[in-house]
Design a protein around this nucleic acid. Sequence first.
DNA 1: TCTGGGGTCCTAGGACCC
DNA 2: TCTGGGGTCCTAGGACCC
Length: 422
Amino acid sequence: MAVMRRIAHLDMDAFFASVELLRYPQLKGLPVVIGGGRRREDDVLGRMRTLEPEREWTSADLADIPVAAFPRLRAYTGRGVITTATYAARVFGVGSAMGVMKAAKLCPDAILLPVDFEQYRHYSRTFKDIVRDIAPIVEDRGVDEIYIDFTDVPGGQREGGKSLARLIQKTITDHTGLTCSIGVAPNKLLAKMASELNKPNGISILYEHDLQRNIWPLACRKINGIGPKADEKLQAHGIHTIGDLAAKERDWLMQHFGKSYGAWLCDAAHGRDERPVVTESEPVSMSRETTFDKDLHVVHDRAALGAIFTRLCQQVAADLQRKGYVGKTIGIKLRFDNFQSVTRDQTIDHYTANPMEIRHVGGLCLKRVDMKRRLRLLGVRVGALVKAGTDEAFTTDAAKSDELPRESPPSKEPHHEQADLF
DNA sequence: TCTGGGGTCCTAGGACCC
DNA sequence: TCTGGGGTCCTAGGACCC
């Protein structure tokens, strides 16, 4: 029998929330959401020490904490969004990326837990290692998602990939107590959609000939790469399902959505996708950003802003150094109280991971912004990365050519005095 | 009820070079 | 004096994803 290209997409079910349930099994079956801001004071262990000081509460006692002691959505006041919700919480319409305050209206009694990335990264590494032991060609798609190339894995062709998917699913659950959903299809595009068809803890096998029956009835939004903007435009043209999209001429799509995106839309609707499963990639940029507890005024809150800016620069620099990268494009990002964002960046003539240098160049970028409104977010980014210690990392513009390094082009923008405060 | 943080990729215009 | 293309780099913004 001919070897078929079989690609799997694996998605951990309600990942962050499920990891929390391992620590707090008493919350199983209850609506729980992860998210909100920096609310460490809601730490349940701390609360128990106040409530029952006679007992020595340690991290070994997490499962003994009564449900009543957990913070509720109702009590939340700050900013922030929901990162993950348990299926019991999703019943109320609560979902990821939703503002916490909105979620509190929908389900005030849901339990709200702070995000603990340290813990999630640990389980992320664990489940990926398990998969790589079984099927080595794995592409990282974030903390809770991967693509796996089943094509040449022994047994990867059996039942279209179903038995291998079952093995991976069972091994992950046996080792971690977590469940996942897997879709197997001829390519990444269809595998991603397949993994959504049967959640949670499901497996979906898709063949090319299933396209019309299983994919075409789905909403265009289900295609990975069609977001809210593109969907709105499609809807305006009366295109609602993937089948509607497939019925459109390639030329028509290219005319209305651009040469590149239009052609891609056409291919996607017909289930065509040749992208390989990529096992390794280099980072392009690293950044740190923070949304303030309340909007800050550039003049009135300049001390606070300056301190936050310095800290962000130190964090990015530390990230770069820890991971062994240097970059030469340094930029800042601001978000105003009306949610409008601006970015400014500047490319310097050498690579760096130095916090003071990042702060200096970032400061120059900030001077180019007209601070007409209060700020809600400040971010720092370093791009054009190369590995530290390589030959390239030591090159400067002066070394690359015999010419003197060019002066940075004169800014077209006015110089804004307020930003000098940084 | 205002909307996190960390990324990638694309577009488009201008500078600059050949 | 006016008129070329092609290629690369830089910058700003935006769509999209997890």
